[in-house]
Nucleic acid binder design. Structure first.
Lengths: 209, 209
DNA sequence: CTAGGTGAGCGTACGATGTACTCCTACGAG
DNA sequence: CTCGTAGGAGTACATCGTACGCTCACCTAG
């Protein structure tokens, strides 16, 4: 019966993402997002408990683009495992600035939970259960999360590679050489090769490679 | 000839770590560290360019405890790879609160560089070079970094496990089951098993397992 | 058609943060 | 003892998150 709401949760997530894309993650603030929405700062608090929840919305928005089942649950299980990992990489790659947010409050946000559920289902379909499944799941999760960070924040990527390759060659010869090599390996290939290695080590048959 | 310095870099790192251990990472501030050292806030800026550099000092302090070569460079190369990974895990495990700092400015800080150089040397000793070495290095790095975060910030660890196991069982059956299983797998074992899987997948002969 | 109350919107204010600027002063060389 | 150098610190400002409470737009009841 009172005045109707003028904002929606997806609109807020979109605005926050717009702020991040335009001015970078440090510029993400309640004031900035409110301004982006053409609304007073404190009005945001009618929709969001605080900054933490706002960040959660951004994570959810980014991860919402990973499709969990267009392969169908009857697709080859190992293919599903690989696809789930690759899609997270793609989703994160579309918004690299949010990488540091991926870690906060993962168990409060739904998207990672649904992803985890899908991944565990695929592993179970392959006969991996119990402690083996715990190890496989956490190893894959660690790799995917770590790879996203290494790729977008790491010393071996982007301008980091350049900085590394001009290190004192006498003190860090291998590092300098590897930085040079790294520039010749496309990031997507690198991720896929790493992922396949991890899967193989876990006893998951790699699709077609 | 002027007044002598009253602070040292290690002392500042120690003070910052003490603040973090006592009050948590969000409490890390220039004021808090200065107070810990019994010194005016702005005096800290005589020793540190700013907050970012202070964080770097903390990372360096934590990572400085990983011994890079007590195995000797003539030890079995695969054993060196495994040891380097395990030691980072141990070092981080001793100060879990600093995990979020590990990613910032990795190529400005010396400790990760030295670690990377040692790791690349071990891989080269095993005949892994060129693009293969790039993939192996980044995969191991992603796993170690990701594992630290999953272990200390993740939904499957500590209180996160508890939160997960009381999820709606009908919507997340696998997740709930895995959370229960996870409580029966010691984190160190889980890390070692995951590490060995990654190494095996990369073609690195796992030591004795 | 009108009166009322609910809750959306937001202005103000407070504490905390990083840090630029400035002054004061302790110290050792001469 | 004197003095210049550079370390120590106080003040100040912009920015942040957010607690509090006011105003008024809107829907419903009569």
């Amino acid at each position: 019966m009172p005045r109707p709401r003028s904002l929606t949760t997806p609109a807020i997530a979109e605005a926050a993402l717009a702020v991040i894309e335009r001015q970078g993650l440090p510029a993400l603030s309640m004031r900035a997002v409110a301004g982006e929405l053409g609304v007073g700062t404190m009005s945001l608090y009618r929709y969001v408990r605080g900054r933490e929840e706002l960040e959660g919305l951004v994570v959810e928005r980014v991860l919402a683009t990973v499709d969990l089942d267009d392969l169908g649950p009857d697709a080859p299980w190992a293919g599903r495992v690989a696809a789930l990992c690759e899609r997270v990489r793609d989703a994160v790659g579309a918004h690299p600035a949010v990488v540091p947010l991926l870690l906060v409050g993962r168990h409060r946000i739904e998207a990672p939970l649904r992803w985890g559920e899908a991944m565990l289902g695929a592993l179970a379909a392959g006969g991996i259960t119990g402690a083996d499944r715990v190890v496989a799941f956490r190893t894959l999760l660690a790799f995917v999360l770590g790879a996203a960070q290494v790729e977008h924040l790491g010393p071996l990527s982007g301008e980091g590679t350049v900085a590394l390759s001009r290190l004192p060659t006498d003190r860090y010869p291998h590092l300098a050489a590897t930085a040079a090599d790294a520039r010749r390996v496309p990031p997507a290939d690198e991720f896929r090769r790493g992922l396949h290695a991890v899967m193989a080590g876990l006893g998951i048959p790699v699709p077609r490679c």
